[in-house]
Design a protein around this nucleic acid. Sequence first.
RNA 1: GCGCCCGUAGCUCAACUGGAUAGAGCAUCAGCCUUCUAAGCUGAGGGUUAGUGGUUCGAGUCCACUCGGGCGUACCA
Length: 542
Amino acid sequence: MKKYLIEVFRLTSEKLDYLKDIDLILTVPALAKHGDFSTNVAMLLTKKLRRNPKEIANEIISELVYDKNIIEKIEIAGPGFINFYFSPLYVTKIVKDIVESKDEFGRSKKHAGKKAIVEFVSANPTGPLTVGHGRNAVYGDTVANMLEWVGYSVDREYYFNNAGRQMRVLGESVKFRYLELLGQTLEFPEDHYQGEYIKDIAKGLIDQYGNKLVDEPADGIFKATAEQEIFKDIENTLKSLNIKFQNYFNENSLYESGKIKELLKIFAERNLSYEKDGATWLKLTELGNEMDKVIVKSTGEPTYRLPDIAYHTTKFDRGYDLIIDIFGSDHNATYPDVMAGLRSLGYDTDKVKVLIHQFVTIMQKGEVVKMSTRKANFITLDELVGEVGGDVVRYFFNMRGISSHLNFDLELAKTQSDENPVFYLQYAHARISSIFRMTKGEELQLSVENLDLLTSEEEQNLLKKLHQFQEEMLYSAESFESHRITAYLEELAALFHRFYTQCRIIGSEKKLAEARIALCTATQTVLRNGLKILGVSAPDKM
RNA sequence: GCGCCCGUAGCUCAACUGGAUAGAGCAUCAGCCUUCUAAGCUGAGGGUUAGUGGUUCGAGUCCACUCGGGCGUACCA
């Protein structure tokens, strides 16, 4: 419907010059009586043309050339909105498109041929993923799905660091538990990792090696085994949420390949860095940021900025057109330094989109749970998936805009999971499957020959919502807003449930029944396609 | 102090990027199953959009200030 209107306006702008350089905004009005689509162009032009909006609207309408079989009525309303009403017959045509395109319906080729990389999760292997990581993981994977849906070829990447202090402490923590389990009494350091999982890893080592490792350094087999086990857990957790990475990028490889040294050399050569107090500083003030920052400590160890910049240069060098980083809000101060560094090297940082999501607050028994991996008072993502299931977790984290702080009430998630909107969507899908099982026995078949019979209010509203799918997906993908998809699907499911209650199939006249089967098929296809982008399953039975 | 984010119904959140009467779910109340799944449908109540000013045809949305909350503000990542 919208595409048709845009074309009509394009043709009209050849006659009315003032329409040429205006941004045509067509929206679906909140109220049905305001039509199927509405535009405010006349109001936007008042200032420029110094004329009354209604007068302008009248002039535009009189020049519009359109097919009366498609648009039934055009009205001017309120302060100068132009409202369009489509013909019921045209509205029904969407069913044919959907039935023909099936799983491909709603895709867009707009960004075909472009490559994107989405970096997310990127948690270092020091412990299991927390509920907090869950938001990052689910959102990142959904962004990747959305981009694929509109034509991008997407790589999902997990960046990690298995060197440095954190990992040393991890190895020591495991060794402590190992010695404890062998009967030694030790005082476990408070700043070490205290989670049960550390004991499990230590226990595994005893099962395999007995007490032969007593003299091994913490940095050796203890650390290595911990990393391996933890990564295995992380991968399993992600798998339970349908998330799979194409690539795990080890920060260490940047040192091994000489990338870090190379970068330091370039910064020095271009006079972008300097030495002070035994450390190397990057001249960020010259690059427009507030203060210079250390990139190599006086100990000779680089700070996170240097490898981060190096890492990003590899993303550019690998030829991505769109580079997406997904971070929690605790990183919001770090990326401007990295971006400035990249700009100074001549990279076009417009290609980089840093998407920062706010934190998840866990509420338990009415209180906020403070979480720390070290103290092990976190709630793992695994536990959450175990309690409510992967579909609910995926849906829940996709339901909200990323800039809003998210309250996750554990009791609510557990006890009222039946009321979760995800079931509402899945139920609509399952109901349609059930219809098909029943109609098969009645020898009714899908037919797109008599779609003109779909004239009831419930049918027309459902059809109009189906028309919006492709555009909604494109908009969601381009604005990286997965919560728009959940909102759309909830509206679609609501319209279907209303249709279901009001319009029977079995018992209706054959032609009408078969047209309704086509409508159900179309609805189910759109529900399934939408759920697929969200990474949520579409069951045939519930 | 400074930077980013947030403040909308009892609770959790939307609001098509400045549009028409601010919407959903949960919770509460009242109805609807001899017919394709009642995990559903219909209806009711619930709001000074934290506050005060401003910008304009028009503000939850933009600007300024105030109040309240989250995350940062390292030679930690």
